[in-house]
């Protein structure tokens, strides 16, 4: 279980102090797929970084499986919006690198690399270098690299945000399949509400300034989920709440220039507020 209790976090920048998280508490059960949504600056990535151990809270505590988080570790894999693959290594070596750092015995490498590269359908490209792959393929390699050391938690920070809609759709299907097969605990940050509803058991909406949890919506839908039908119902519900928060951010950023039109959501065809950014 991931337990976040009373966590607060400030950032100090040139433009002043920014209250990223204000005594946030959250429990995530093992094997759960939790999506964090919210307007930009609500602290959803910060929350993820705290679980990853890349950042430390000002107050409060983060424990993963009853161990306080003090540093990043291979039990919690992180995927970023950019694949963050190493350009000097081939696909295979990139995956092996994660295994090496997690102290997986060398004798197991070959089997694991094969298993996970096949899972993301890239076994054929095992000897390719990163620049030879498309954006979607890179994210799939990154997914294989994250999964191969068999982490207990998979943390994903907008991993599909820079992909085109079709590729994203394919990856949603693949990710659901892999998640079902491996039963990892997943924390998935996105600003795309449709993506969150489609993938998550729970969608947690964060409010901004200060960052705190506003809604915790349980998504009770059968899998695999397509992006139509019942998904749309939840999307609509969450978007309505989200709009209030987005308005708040916009008013702060733009001042008087921001004139929201009632009932008119600033959403694109993919249903993501700010999804086109």
């Amino acid at each position: 279980m991931i337990r976040i209790s009373q966590v607060s976090k400030h950032f100090i920048s040139r433009t002043g102090s920014h209250h990223a998280l204000d005594s946030v508490s959250l429990d995530i059960a093992d094997g759960q797929f939790v999506c964090l949504v919210g307007p930009s600056g609500c602290g959803k990535s910060t929350l993820l970084n705290l679980i990853a151990g890349l950042e430390m809270p000002d107050s409060g505590s983060v424990t993963v499986f009853d161990t306080p988080v003090t540093a990043p570790g291979p039990d919690r894999s992180v995927m970023f919006q950019d694949s963050a693959l190493f350009p000097w290594l081939s696909v295979r070596k990139n995956v092996e690198f994660g295994l090496e750092l997690a102290n997986v015995p060398r004798s197991e490498w070959q089997g694991r690399v094969e298993t996970f590269l096949k899972k993301v359908h890239l076994w054929r490209f095992r000897d390719a270098y990163v620049h030879e792959l498309s954006g979607g393929m890179r994210q799939r390699v990154a997914l294989a690299r994250s999964l191969a050391p068999d982490p207990r938690v998979l943390l994903m920070d907008e991993p599909f945000a820079s992909l085109d809609a079709q590729t994203r759709d394919v990856l949603h299907v693949e990710l659901q399949e892999i998640w079902r097969a491996t039963q990892k605990t997943v924390v998935f940050v996105t600003h795309n509400v449709r993506e969150a509803v489609r993938l998550g058991d729970r969608v947690i909406m964060l409010a901004t300034r200060p960052g705190r949890i506003k809604h915790d919506v349980k998504i009770d839908l059968a899998r695999p989920r397509e992006s139509e039908g019942d998904v749309a119902y939840y999307v609509g519900r969450i978007m309505k709440e989200l709009k209030v928060e987005v308005d708040k951010v916009m008013r702060e950023e733009m001042g008087d220039a921001w004139q929201p039109t009632p009932g008119d959501l600033p959403s694109g065809p993919t249903g993501g507020v700010g999804g086109g950014i």
Partner: peptide, 10 residues
Amino acid sequence: LLVRAARTMG
């Protein structure tokens, strides 16, 4: 980001 990614892998 590369350094961050490497840190998360341990």
